[in-house]
Every structure is written in C-alpha cells, then in structure tokens.
Nucleic acid binder design. Structure first.
Lengths: 355, 355
DNA sequence: TTGTAGGCGTTATCAG
DNA sequence: CTGATAACGCCTACAA
C-alpha cells in the first residue's frame, strides 16, 4: 500500500485535501465502493477484502470525509443550532451543557450562537441557522415580552421550519412551537409556602422589571401564594428594579428604608438576592438575624456559600434535555408540544425557621 | 414578479428547498448572474436593474443560500470550532463568550464541542472539527498533564492543520502551537505578596492534585513567593486533594486538624475555597476571624458574596479574545506565538489586614 | 457485490 | 457585463 498523493494541483495558499477519490484510487476500487466501505450506511454490501483495502488506504492517507460534502449529498447536515443570549450566564451555559450532551449522544454537533443580550438579534441567528441547514434549533432565552420582536422571530422560525428543521424554545413558551417551560409560578408559590411553614408572616419582594415575564411570574405567584397562606405582603413592600445585582441592591435599599420591615425578602433571582445581601450589609442589617432573604435560580456556584441562600432550583439539565428531546424528535406534525420543568425549593440558612 | 414555485419534485419527508436556480429562473437571469447579484463577492459587476430583479425574486421566494454548498464551492467554511471540557463551567463559558463575540465580529460562527470532562476525547473532537472543515479551532482546557493524551491530541492537530485550519490553545500551552497562557504563577505570587503585606506570616495551602498542572503552578508559586517574602509555609500545611468543592472541604478539614493552624489558607481555586469555608464552619472555625481564606479564579457569581472571597482574577474575556485572535489571524507560518494573560489579585473580606 | 453516472447548491473560469 | 459550464466532495439509484 503506497501513499499515493493526490496528483491534483491547488491554488496557492490552499492545502492539499485528500478526498474520497484519492482513497479509492489508492485502494484500487471505485469511488462508490470506497464510499460504501467507509460509510457503510445501512447495507454493508462490500467484501471484507476490499473493505480492508479501503480502510487501510484511508488510514494511510489520513483521509477524513468532508462533512459539508456529505451534507450536500445527503441533503441533511448533522448539526443542531443553539441560540442563547449570553453563554457566560450560568442559566444559559447550564442549558447548553445539557443540549450538547444530548446532541452528542445522537451523533450531532452543536452550533452555538449568542445574541449578546440583544433580543432583536434572535431572528438573525435563526436565519443563520437556516443558512447552515441545521437539523434543529433550540432557542433559549428572550425573557422580555416584546410583540414586535416576537413577530420577527416567528417569521424567521417559519422559514426555518419550512426548510424542514424542527424548533424548540426553552424559557419563554412560543405559541405553536414546541416549548419547554420552567415552572416559575409553581416554584415561587412553593417557596412562599415553605417560608410560611418556617414561621414567616410578613414578606417583601424585590420584583425586577414590571414587564419582565419571568420576573412577573415569580413575583405575582409568590405574593398570591404568600397571602393565600395567611401571610402579609404590603404593596409598598413590593419594589421594582433591574433584573441584576445592582437592581437587587438598590431595591433592597429602598425596601429597608421603609417602615415595617418585612421578616423575609424574596428576590426574584439569585443575583438580585446577592445584591440585596450586600445592600443589607452596607446598611448594617444582618442576614438572617434582622431580615431573611430568598432568591430564585439556585445558581450553581452559589451553592455552599455562606450564608447559604434559600432559593428555588431550576434543573437546567432537565430543561436542556427536554429542549433537545423536543427539537431532535422533530415534531410529528401535530400540535405544538409542551414540557413543564418543575422547580424545587431549596431551604438554606438565609431563611432559618422562626421561633 | 410572480412567486414561481420550484417545479422539482422531492422525496417524501423532504421539504421543498428553494435554490439559487429557482431565484435565477424567477428573475429571468442566469445562475451565474443570480449568484453574483446575491453574493457580490469582490467585483460587483452586475447591472443595478438585474440586481434588483434578482434581489426581489430571492426575497419573494424566501431564498437563503446554503452555507454547505457555498463552503464546498468556495473551498472554505465560515465556522470556527471551540473545544471545552464543560461549557457549564464558568471558566469555559467565560472563554466561550469571548470567542463567540470575536467570531461574530468577523462573520464566523462557532461550533461548540465538549469533552464532558474526558480529556481523552479531545482528539476525537479535533477530528470532528477536521471533518467539519472549520477554519480554525480553539482548544480550552486540558488541565491534567498526560503525555499520552497529549500525543494523540498533537497527532489530530497535525492532521487538522495540514488541512489548512489554524489552531490555538488556551490554558495549557502546547509546544509548537499558538497558545494563550494564563499567568498562574504570577497571580499566585502576587497573592502571596499581598497577604504578606496584610500582615500574614504563616500560610497553609489546599493544593489540589499533585499532578494537576494548573494546581501545581499556583501552589508552588504561592509557596515560593510566600517564603521568599519572609513568610512561613510548613510542609505539613500543604494538603493535596481533588480540584473540587469536596476536595477543598476535606483538605481544609485535614489542615485544621493539625497543630499550629496557619493564619491564612490558600485554596488553588475558588470552588475549593468554598468547600474550605464550609468545612471551617462545620468545625466551628470562623472565617476570617479564626482563619483567613483565599482562592483563585474569581468566579463571577461569587463576587459580592458574603464574606467576600479574596482571590486572583483571570480575565476570561481577554483570554478568549486572545485565543480567537491567534486562531483567526492564522499563524503566518512562523514560530508558534504565545500570549500571556495577566491575572489580578482581588482582596476582599476573607483576608482582612492583620493588626 | 461492484462500478457508472447523475445530482446536491454554489462558485468561478472562460468565453461571448 | 452576462451566460454556459466545469468543478467542489460525496452519495446513490441504476446497471453490470
């Protein structure tokens, strides 16, 4: 078996690429046979002897099939697209990890695209995925509800699906599209219940942006449940602000400045809760001695921090898995499916039982 | 302009894909002209009138070029590969964010692959990238030094580069390959200096796995610098263990069980430091009152936690940017380049100045 | 079982 | 400036 080098010539700057024909020639078989030997697909109709020859030739020529060419010939790629707002955000990276695992399991690879926090870019990225002819795309994020943006997104998704790709969103359900929805209301309500059970009777809320879908769901469910359970949440103790650390800090500041400080403060996400902790400390208010604090998300690197933050865990791996399952199974043409990912209350030291 | 639908027939299950020919036909021009009008490449030699017609046709047909076909014809894809161990790890997701941004900036998209913490899979993923014909690949991770694995990786990288792709590694420098290296020794030494300056004279180290490259670099530099600065680090106060939360916790436990407890304990990463905090608390040892603690990495979600953890920040965005720059500039054939990313000491409450 | 040949969607070369 | 037409690398009926 000699290392027959391709005789073709390449433009300067280009590198010699060994193709299937090279392998076929080196092995002394036809292109078809080489293809079958290397790919095998369903019917492995190729004599062991030849097969060996081909494999050996491929090996010695360091041949690797060109996925793009295969995609063209087969009419389908082996990639799934994942669109997030910011991969550095633990929420998204958690989902990404699960999606990656799932894709890997079925021999697909993932193309990652990030909107860089610009929700209006979502539709552009969907268009990108269409050009790439990804088999499926998973869209995570888009927490703000903006009808116009959603319309454009829908449009792009229409084109994408018309091209045969399947789609799944996780986080914000999208009418008519397979979606996995996080049980924010359930989690917030459960948290309220758990706090009541621990003896808290008055609560405040750092509620995030009024229009923020996720924030709203958590805030409203918490308030409703806490009240329904006999607790008190004063209207003046529901403070709005940004969905960020700073947002949590300044909201907490405002809250602590009011009379009748509530026994516990619920921040609609962990990062805000951290800001709240910091603000409290700055004001000389001790947590949990003077005021208890709870968050939402259970950010992974926050676990085992001191004091442990009571929160609601979102099983991101489940969410990612579910999204991948929906997207990869491809919807059977029927109704848009929906998967609910249950959240779970995690009680820690920041909300000790009240005597 | 009528919406001329493609007359071709497709196998069942397949979806009608509108191609450039369809657009050309609808616009009444040749394939070549349509291509030029839509792509324009360098020489935009196509009459405005025709150009308009083509654009309109494409628009109404909802045409999008097939990236795979373009890749084939052009002989080059527009994707860059990114290989990490675990995208959920803030270290990797931080780098991924920067890489994504950089790629985006130059009109490339990123294909993400994860080894799932199995370093032996790195070479497989490199092979994947080769099949995909990515223009460049960035490898982040691989903290363990395993010559055999490295050999296989090298091999795969050779093939990849022979195919014309450029490569850059970040984290663990690889001989002969463009790499961005994190200044772990510098950071650890600087931390030692800062602690000495704050009045600490005795230190212990939670050193991670003995063979772990990163751990070793940090541990040794810290010890050397602390001693060089007049401080004391007893051999029995350097405890090895896992590079994880549990590793930090049990190492701390062991350390606190010894006589002559050091004034400050340096954990070679933040997560281990967290474990250490937890272990200390469990043993009734207060931080920082009874013992000060410092970590390394400055995990983003840990900032602003109480008590603030003194640590060494790794500017992941810089690292990612640098890697992308190296990989995308493609090495000019010369020597392997090297970029040093400086780390920065961040002093917080876990290591207060000693009176 | 193996080989031949046509096609996948674009780009690019080379004549008109 | 525009239009045939040959690649690009591979797969797959269809034939042999």
């Amino acid at each position: 078996m000699t290392d027959v080098l391709p005789a073709r010539r390449y433009p300067p700057g280009m590198v010699a690429r060994v193709t299937l024909s090279d392998v076929a020639r080196a092995a002394g078989v036809s292109l078809a046979t080489a293809s079958r030997a290397l790919n095998g697909s369903s019917n492995r109709t190729v004599q062991p002897a030849l097969r060996e020859r081909v494999l050996a030739a491929a090996e010695s020529l360091r041949y690797t099939p060109d996925a793009n060419a295969q995609a063209m010939a087969r009419g389908a790629t082996s990639s799934v697209g994942l669109i997030v707002h910011d991969i550095a955000d633990p929420y998204f990276s958690g989902i990404a990890a699960a999606v990656t695992r799932a894709a890997d399991r079925v021999g697909l690879h993932v193309t990652l695209a990030s909107t860089q926090h610009q929700p209006d870019r979502e539709h552009e990225l969907v268009a990108l995925m269409r050009r790439l002819r990804t088999r499926a795309v998973i869209i995570a994020g888009g927490r703000m509800a903006d009808p116009e943006r959603e319309a454009r997104l829908r449009d792009a998704l229409g084109d994408l699906m018309a091209a045969g790709a399947s789609v799944a969103v996780v986080g914000q359900p999208l009418e008519g599209i397979d979606s996995v929805v996080i049980d924010n209301p359930g989690g917030a309500a459960a948290l309220a219940g758990a706090l009541l059970e621990r003896g808290y009777t008055t609560a405040g809320v750092l509620g995030g942006p009024p229009e923020h879908q996720t924030a709203r769901a958590r805030r409203e469910s918490f308030v409703d449940a806490f009240r329904a359970g006999g607790g008190t949440v004063g209207e003046e103790h529901v403070v709005h602000g940004l969905f960020t650390w700073e947002g949590g800090a300044s909201a907490m500041e405002a809250l602590l400045g009011r009379p009748d400080r509530p026994q516990v403060v619920f921040a609609v996400n962990d990062v805000m809760a951290l800001g709240a902790l910091s603000a409290a400390r700055a004001l000389g208010v001790r947590v949990p001695d003077d005021v208890a604090v709870a968050g939402f998300d259970d950010i992974v690197t926050l676990r085992d921090v001191v004091p442990g933050l009571t929160t609601v865990r979102i099983p991101l791996d489940e969410a990612g898995e579910a999204a991948a399952e929906l997207a990869l199974d491809g919807m059977g043409g029927g109704e848009a499916r929906r998967r609910l990912v249950r959240t779970e209350v995690v009680l820690r030291e920041s909300t000790p039982p009240r005597a």
